[in-house]
């Protein structure tokens, strides 16, 4: 292997992880807001959110990424032009996080909505009976009680996010897959670099699984184990 290409792959991996983390955080924000909107919002909010989750989940990520990538940068530039500023180049990182976060938001809306619905109704009623304001109830009751139900689904979404960053290679963002393609194209050692990138992705997935197991055990603390009941 030519010296330096390994470093290129690692830089690509770093960019992939940055985007995956950013997109997951944005997706969690959208998902939490979306889930509460779907459960407690007015009829119009609910219908609009239903359209959002249905459309995003029915259209391929690649098409959405292209659409949002062009539409998003176009929209920002037009707004800036209307306000009298000059056009800016949107950084690939910000655009990637926005696009993947928007897609992740639709999926996490459904995951979090399901998790909130799985909370025993009595807990929320008890919180209301104590006179908790909605914010406090969200922080003390709904969030901790929903976590064990939400974490498996959210963990899946994190793994999907790390793999979906590869799609940004198609719009030319420099992440692991594109770095691999460039390295392979220059050195002609195609198989070597693609296998190396695969190993890197796999390492991220396996390491995530390890952490997820810990987090899941932590979120389930104090809950009766299903295994022992059998």
């Amino acid at each position: 292997m030519a010296p330096g290409w390994g470093g290129t792959l690692l830089v690509g991996l770093l960019h992939s992880l940055e985007i995956a983390i950013g997109a997951t955080c944005l997706g969690l924000l959208i998902g939490t807001a979306g889930a509460f909107g779907k459960l407690y919002g007015g009829p119009v909010t609910r219908d609009l959110l239903a359209v959002y989750t249905t459309v995003v989940r029915a259209v391929p990520e690649l098409v959405l990424i292209l659409l949002l990538y062009y539409a998003g940068t176009d929209l920002i530039n037009q707004v800036l032009a209307a306000m009298g500023y000059s056009r800016v180049d949107i950084s690939g990182l910000a655009a990637g996080i926005f696009v993947l976060g928007f897609v992740q938001g639709a999926y996490s809306t459904e995951v979090i909505r399901g998790a909130i619905l799985a909370i025993p109704q009595g807990q929320i009623e008890a919180a209301r009976a104590y006179g908790m304001p909605p914010g406090l109830m969200l922080r003390r009751i709904t969030m901790p009680a929903m976590l064990p139900f939400a974490i498996p689904g959210l963990a899946n979404l994190w793994l999907i996010a790390t793999k979906d960053t590869a799609l940004l290679a198609v719009v030319g963002f420099f992440e692991l897959t594109l770095a691999t393609r460039q390295a392979a194209g220059v050195t002609k050692a195609y198989l070597l670099f693609y296998v190396a990138a695969g190993v890197l992705y796999l390492a991220v997935t396996l390491f995530s699984n390890l952490i997820i197991g810990r987090v899941e055990a932590w979120s389930r603390r104090g809950m009766p184990s299903v295994k022992e009941a059998r």
């Binding site: 960053t165 691999t180 393609r181 198989l191 693609y194 990138a197 695969g198 992705y201 796999l202 997935t205």
Partner: peptide
Amino acid sequence: TIIRGTPLLLQLWLLYYGLGSI
């Protein structure tokens, strides 16, 4: 585990460009 742990795009390019060059 390997299939679910790596992006499909990478698998596709591995087969097409990698094996295709071998």
